[in-house]
Amino acid sequence: MLSSTNLSFTYPGGEVLKFPDLVCPAGETRLLLGKSGSGKTTMLQLLAGLRKPATGSVVINGQNLNELSGAELDYFRGQNVGMIFQTAHFIRALSVRENLAIAQQLAGKPIDRPRIDGLLEELDLGGKGNALPGKLSVGQQQRAAIARAIINQPAVIFADEPTSALDDDNTRQVIQLLQRQAEAVKATLLIVTHDNRLTGIIPQQTKL
């Protein structure tokens, strides 16, 4: 469950951007569309609590993000928010499996080995658990990033241009996986994109 009301953001240069209100029930997949420079990424960062809005508020799972201090917000994010970026980033010194384990740990949860292995298997990464992320292909990396985003069964998954670096086949595969996994954990999935390949698949859309 994710909602925002009256959100606006003031850039360091003084430019003010207003964003449309958003209400996404649990389990919904929604696209956030807009041209480059329309503030899509900024809105995603506001929704994920990575930036502070000038006005308005974001509520995730009943919690107003404005009411959380810095450290509380970090912790809340670890437990309730999963994030996927255009390029997948990992802790480079840790194996894929250890990356998933530390995601559980940083969120304050116990390490759940069967879940990690099951998830890797599901995402067709069964043999890659002990590999360093840098050794994976781009498609594999993006799948591993999906695994990490959903490992803690978050309330909301934010994906920032998750398919822009992928070819058609990988795009279809990644979106299907994302949707399936989001449904499995009953998470709201919000995808920020300007990728036309997605607009045909996902009907719920918000334009900036």
């Binding site: 940083l106 969120a107 304050g108």
Partner: peptide, 19 residues
Amino acid sequence: RERRYELALMRTMGAGRKK
């Protein structure tokens, strides 16, 4: 410098500044 993404990533995963 090479690891600034992974540090930011750790923040998104719930690691506070102290960590």
